[in-house]
Nucleic acid binder design. Structure first.
Length: 922
DNA sequence: AATGTAACGTA
DNA sequence: CGTACGTTACATTG
């Protein structure tokens, strides 16, 4: 839902107006909204399936209405505001005419209840809500409009009912939604006149003649707006038209005469009441401050994230200062030149909040500001480009002292930023980003302002929100402001520690944070800082080679079809394949039919068309070239590539690698493997060493399931897939054919992903029935695996989460979804997460062990990369044997300390060495 | 310019 | 109709 919601937020963002709202005027401006009509519009404008809370409450109308309101408040800057609702279905109009609005379908189920939510939301915004039995919302609006106009107020009426056009005047504008609720047409007297050829007061005359389908009021057949306007002008209003009906010639006149009663009734019904008795007048509707706490709670319940930001971003500055009350209370201390040391020493035993402004890219970071906050509401901030030497020294000593505890948000970035200024960062006791990740691993981002909202109900100004990487422009503004913003961040971090620390503890993740993720963060920082050496010359020659292949394949492809197309455009390819060449359709995708490699290969097998061959070769070559070009761009001045290992991205607990991604360097094809030759041992070191776990996920499955057969397989030391194959097919291990083995291998791995028999049949190009039989046979021999897989899903459904061997949780609310697709996806996630996540836990433990042991032994060799089940190290002269032993030991024993003792299966590690990543691989 | 989609590389 | 990622180019949108 989050995705759909943000899409909608963007779509709704601008209130388009034919002309800009006037601002800066001192005239009071009253905004009146027809609540029901706008909510209804919102309901139909936004797809309900994209808007629901995790509990299933539909929220599309609430979202659309609130979004619209936020835009109106922002753009129109009303001083007074009210929302009117219809109070039931019977009004004086339905009493007069039973069929009035009688064509309206009964309220759709998902709309029910949303009006009540909107009313509650309006209450938190302290917006007056009005309704009155027997009259419609528009009558209330009309009455208030008349009163406000007479009091000299400007009035804006927002309604989807055209009857309100009769209210338009020099100081009264109707905002009429044209598409959804995001675009409003500004109905001024001129706009009404331009559209209908009549002044606003005569619009209801026209509507009476033409009819109003939405109110179930039929008009005069054959009479449209043009004719109606002509008559009304000619006879000076509807009464004149009716009086002179006899004189109007032609079919239209005939028709009019036959429907005089209807027209009169229409006019009676579409006249809005301006004398409704109301408990309040316009003067009572002044905009008031929101009930911030209640609003936050409502937005929490509604799970509106982007909307919250927009609502609060909209507040005027004086209100904003108020809402950062906690931050405003922050005492930004001027310690005076050389005073930092004393300030820090007075807080020697305290874990302080630290914010570093700067750029956190590995090996090219820079820091230009720091702020430190204590737990008593005091903070200090320094501009590192202009810091006194004494303060600089005190800061450096404090930052680098492992015994002086500090808490940060995204400490690894700060580490790199400080490193760029020659400052070491040690003693990180808490990281709010890591903590939030452990609590909510499925989130994709953990911005500090978001966490402050979510856990502290505190709003950091969006300027303070700028992360370490993006603060550069801020230096242009007032330096004192910059310092305060940093201090606000530091204080937020400091305060988040208490709340998030509790959340982490509640989830049993404290050890995971302090003993695994936090120490690992430092290891990763050093790996990133080190980078891996690249043979640029070789990589450039590869680029040339791949480029040649790209050109050749493209030329061949063009020759076949007799024209040049963009082979990288799926759209153009579809044209060529399915229109020009008339090939059979492939699998359906959003934009037509897929042209992916599997489909092209299949097409080639069926048609043998040479274009496909060249196209596939082109795809291949272009991707290789892209990969190489990307890598070349990433090589730093030191001749090395410094990836960033992201520690808070993968919901299962894995690391990810970005900028560039070194976890997806090709290996499967020969051409791909050539790229790995470009990753080389750097100067001063003797070799690269790779170490990887064999079949770690299968081993974890064996351990977690306790399946005796699978455990025995691993303990036997035999080839896993042959062993399993022999049991499934009932033959001796030696008689398992390669075909049998590959089927077993595919199935074994597929199990950990929730593979279906259909999926297995696709992958192995066999019948579904055969795949299904294979799975049955498998589970007959390895029933523990099946019991485990179903059990893990059942448990997750009951508890709401899965857990790895180190207790890392993944919450999967969709396991109880009514939507089958979502539910089944969640089930596959549930059975995969403990396996993939436990493997991630284990290699993280191993990395800590390897790092600690290398340090303890005083070895120069160092870790460079982690690729999920593989570590790459750079080995110093004379250290190869010892390093290999350290790595083997630490990796193999990573599971020794898991809760409940060691794993039930051994962890097998294979090691290779060589001058390049390719040679070191095995 | 920013965003989404298709495609494809890895474990 | 198998999990977890990141990057790229193209196409569409503002």
């Amino acid at each position: 839902m989050a995705k759909g919601m943000s899409d909608m937020a963007d779509r709704l963002a601008p209130v388009s107006a034919d002309q800009p709202a006037t601002t800066g005027s001192t005239t009071p401006r009253l905004l009146l909204i027809d609540g029901h009509s706008m909510a209804y519009r919102a309901f139909y404008a936004l797809p309900v399936e994209n808007f629901a809370t995790s509990t299933g409450q539909p929220t599309n109308a609430v979202f659309g209405f609130t979004s619209m309101l936020a835009n109106l408040l922002r753009d129109e800057e009303p001083t007074h505001v009210a929302v009117a609702f219809d109070a039931g279905r019977t009004t004086f109009r339905t009493e007069r005419l039973e069929s009035y609005k009688g064509n309206r379908a009964s309220t759709p189920e998902p709309f029910r209840g949303q009006v009540d939510i909107i009313r509650a939301l309006l209450a938190t915004l302290h917006v007056q809500v009005l309704d009155k039995p027997g009259v419609e919302a528009d009558d209330i609006l009309a009455t208030l409009t008349a009163q406000a106009r007479d009091q000299g107020m400007e009035v804006l009426v927002c309604s989807g009912d055209r009857d309100t056009f009769q209210l338009v005047g020099p100081t009264v504008t109707v905002l009429y939604p044209v598409r959804g609720v995001s675009e409003m047409s500004r109905m001024t007297p001129d706009a009404v006149e331009a559209k209908y050829g009549l002044p606003p007061a005569r619009y209801p005359d026209l509507a009476a003649l033409v009819g109003e389908t939405s109110d179930n009021l039929p008009g005069v057949p054959g009479v449209g707006p043009k004719t109606a306007a002509k008559w009304i002008t000619q006879y000076d209003g509807l009464p004149g038209v009716l009086e002179n009906a006899e004189r109007i010639t032609g079919k239209a006149g005939e028709s009019l005469r036959a429907h005089l009663a209807q027209v009169e009734l229409n006019r009676e019904l579409n006249r809005l009441l301006v004398d409704v008795e109301l408990p309040v007048g316009p003067e009572d509707l002044a905009v008031r401050p929101w009930d911030r706490q209640a609003l936050h709670e409502m937005l929490d319940e509604l799970e509106f994230r982007t909307l919250r930001d927009r609502l609060f971003a909209m507040l005027p500055d004086e209100t904003r200062d108020e809402r950062v009350a906690t931050a405003a209370a922050l005492d930004l201390v001027q310690t005076g030149d050389g005073g930092l040391g004393a300030w820090l020493d007075a807080r020697a035993d305290e874990v302080l909040g630290l914010d570093v402004r700067g750029s956190g890219a590995p090996a090219r970071g820079d820091a230009w500001g720091v702020a430190i906050a204590d737990g008593a509401g005091q903070a200090v901030a320094y501009d590192l480009t202009a810091i006194e030497p004494a303060d600089d020294a005190a800061l450096a000593a404090w930052l680098g002292d492992p015994d002086r505890g500090k808490s940060l948000h995204a400490a690894k970035e700060a580490w790199h930023a400080l490193d760029g200024r020659g400052l070491a960062l040690r003693g990180v006791r808490f990281d709010t980003e890591l903590a939030a990740y452990l609590c909510q691993p499925d989130r994709r981002a953990y911005d500090l302002p978001d966490l402050a909202i979510g856990y502290l109900r505190r709003e950091l100004s969006s300027d303070a929100a700028t992360s370490a990487g993006q603060g550069a422009l801020d230096l242009e503004v007032d330096g004192a402001d910059e310092g305060r913003r940093a201090a606000v961040r530091a204080a937020a971090v400091r305060d988040l520690v208490d709340v998030l620390g509790g959340e982490v503890a509640d989830r049993g993740a404290t050890t995971l944070l302090t003993d695994l993720e936090l120490p690992l963060q430092d290891v990763l920082a050093r790996m990133e800082r080190t980078g891996i050496a690249i043979d640029r010359g070789y990589l450039s020659s590869l680029e040339q080679e791949f480029d040649g292949r790209v050109q050749g394949a493209a030329a061949d492809a063009y020759a076949v079809i007799g024209r040049e197309v963009n082979l990288g455009s799926p759209k153009q390819l579809q044209e060529v394949l399915f229109d020009q060449l008339g090939m059979p359709r492939t699998k359906r995708i959003k934009t037509g039919w897929t042209t992916d490699a599997a489909a092209l290969t299949d097409l080639f097998a069926r048609t043998g068309h040479p274009f496909l061959e060249h196209l596939l070769a082109h795809r291949d070559a272009i991707r290789l070239r892209q990969t190489v070009e990307g890598l070349l761009r990433s090589v730093g001045d030191d001749g090395r590539i410094h990836t960033t290992f992201q520690q808070t991205i993968a919901a299962t607990g894995r690391l990810s690698s970005a900028d560039p991604n070194l976890q997806n360097i090709p290996i499967r094809t020969e051409a791909g493997r050539q790229i790995r030759r470009a990753f080389v041992v750097g100067p001063g070191y003797s070799t690269l060493l790779t170490a990887d776990y064999s079949q770690i996920e299968m081993r974890i499955m064996a351990h977690l399931s306790g399946d005796e057969g699978l455990i025995a397989a691993f303990r036997s030391g035999e080839d896993l897939h042959s062993y399993v194959g022999s049991r499934v097919f009932g033959v001796a291990t030696g008689d398992v054919t390669p075909a049998m083995r590959s089927k077993i291998k595919a199935m074994s791995y597929g199990l950990a992903y929730g593979l279906s028999s259909y999926g297995l049949s696709q992958q192995l190009a066999i019948e579904v029935s055969e795949a299904s039989a294979l799975m049955t046979d498998y589970f007959e021999r390895f029933g523990g695996v099946r019991d485990y897989l179903t059990g893990v899903v059942d448990e997750a459904r009951a508890t709401g989460y899965t857990a790895t061997i180190l207790g890392r949780r993944r919450y999967l609310p969709d396991l109880t979804s009514d939507n089958r697709q979502r539910r089944e996806t969640a089930e596959r996630m549930a059975l995969n997460a403990p396996i993939q996540g436990s493997a991630a836990d284990l290699i993280k433990v191993a990395m800590l062990g390897v790092d600690a042991e290398l340090t303890r032994r005083g070895l120069r060799s160092r870790m460079l990369l982690q690729v999920h089940d593989e570590l790459v190290l750079e080995v110093a002269e004379g250290e190869r044997e010892e390093v290999e032993s350290v790595v083997r030991t630490q990796m193999a024993h990573a599971g020794d300390g898991v809760p409940g003792g060691a794993l039930d299966v051994p962890l097998d590690v294979s090691v290779g060495v060589g001058a390049s990543w390719h040679e070191a691989g095995h």
